[in-house]
């Protein structure tokens, strides 16, 4: 039975989780509290773990809650599949429409107007992340400046930049 509830809950989260990442967290919190799957301390842990491990927060939450709620790997598989399923269906439809209709004057016009908006969205993401949690001391700003320069001027691969920053963090702190 817990598998069915996990499936329904995470399907719902996947379906209504607009805006990704932190927007999804509040939905997860709601469902998890409703079923009593995690204590609030456990929920805080999963948020911290999600921030410190790679991968999308939604998938991290689904995997963690699925395992904790059911005590088995199957629970993780069910919850993770359920959170991905709505995106999968909707994105396939959108991709199909896009590839077919991108030359339609309305669709082409809308996509053209959305391009500068999307750039604004990404800029906002960077601004929103400029928090005291991420920038703890002057070293943070130095690391930020180096990462920015390496990416923009030296075209360094982002994965390499992350590894170097991790190494620097290890040496500094």
């Amino acid at each position: 039975m817990v598998y069915l509830y996990l499936f329904i809950s995470f399907f719902k989260i996947g379906l209504f989780g607009f805006g990704g990442g932190y927007a999804i967290l509040s939905l997860v919190q709601h469902e998890v509290e409703h079923y009593g799957w995690l204590t609030s301390a456990q929920f805080t842990d999963i948020v911290a773990i999600s921030q410190m491990t790679p991968g999308p927060i939604g998938i991290n939450c689904a995997t963690y809650v699925g395992y904790t709620a059911s005590g088995s790997i199957l629970g993780s598989v069910v919850a993770t599949t359920a959170i991905l399923l709505p995106s999968f269906i909707i994105m396939i439809i959108l991709s199909k429409l896009y590839l077919k209709l991108k030359n339609n004057p309305y669709i082409a016009g809308v996509l053209k107007s959305l391009r500068p908006v999307v750039i604004g969205l990404i800029a906002a993401a960077a601004l929103v992340l400029m928090t005291p949690d991420n920038f703890i001391d002057p070293w943070s700003f130095i690391l930020f400046a180096f990462a920015f320069l390496l990416t923009l001027s030296f075209k360094m691969h982002p994965i390499l930049v992350i590894c170097l920053a991790g190494l620097a963090g290890y040496l500094i702190y």
């Binding site: 991420n134 700003f141 992350i162």
Partner: peptide, 27 residues
Amino acid sequence: VEAIFKGIRPAVVALIAAPLYKMAKSA
């Protein structure tokens, strides 16, 4: 683990900000 992530977090913000210029040019 905590030390490594203290280094990574500001770098991630820079990674997001850096490609904006190229994107703006292509748009």
